[in-house]
């Protein structure tokens, strides 16, 4: 289990239900490692700054995380975490490896603003 204060995505069905009931969703799929922790923590801070976006995480080693790992947008990714942004139920952006607050803000402005 990820030790974050974010709401965790637990299954494919759970993710489906979240992206159907929220226009803007961001999911950071990773482990408790040095590349992932900074992204979860920026998500925690941004949860307050962007109340219209649902920021969540998902454990990379959960077999259900195939719903993220096997996305075509992530097919070339070889760096944790895989971070996926959804709008109206569709993937609008995916990033690999660590991203800082500025980079995450740029993605939000590009696809979720």
């Amino acid at each position: 289990m990820l030790q974050t204060n974010l709401e965790h995505v637990t299954s494919k069905e759970h993710l489906q239900q979240i992206i159907e009931s929220n226009e803007k969703v961001a999911v950071c799929c990773g482990r408790m490692g040095p590349m992932c922790i900074p992204v979860y923590e920026v998500f925690e801070v941004f949860g307050e700054k962007y109340p219209d976006i649902k920021f969540m995480d998902m454990e990379f080693d959960n077999p259900e995380a195939a719903v993220i790992r096997s996305l075509p947008e992530c097919s070339t990714f070889r760096g944790l975490p895989f971070t996926v942004y959804y709008r109206n139920g569709k993937v609008v952006k995916a990033t690999t490896s660590i991203q800082n607050a500025k980079q995450i803000k740029e993605v939000i402005e590009e696809v979720l603003s």
């Binding site: 590349m35 990714f77 070889r78 760096g79 944790l80 490896s97």
Partner: peptide, 17 residues
Amino acid sequence: FKGGGISYCATCDGEFY
């Protein structure tokens, strides 16, 4: 190529290789 061939963390990304 960060995350798509270039990494900075063995524990995080080693198993992809």
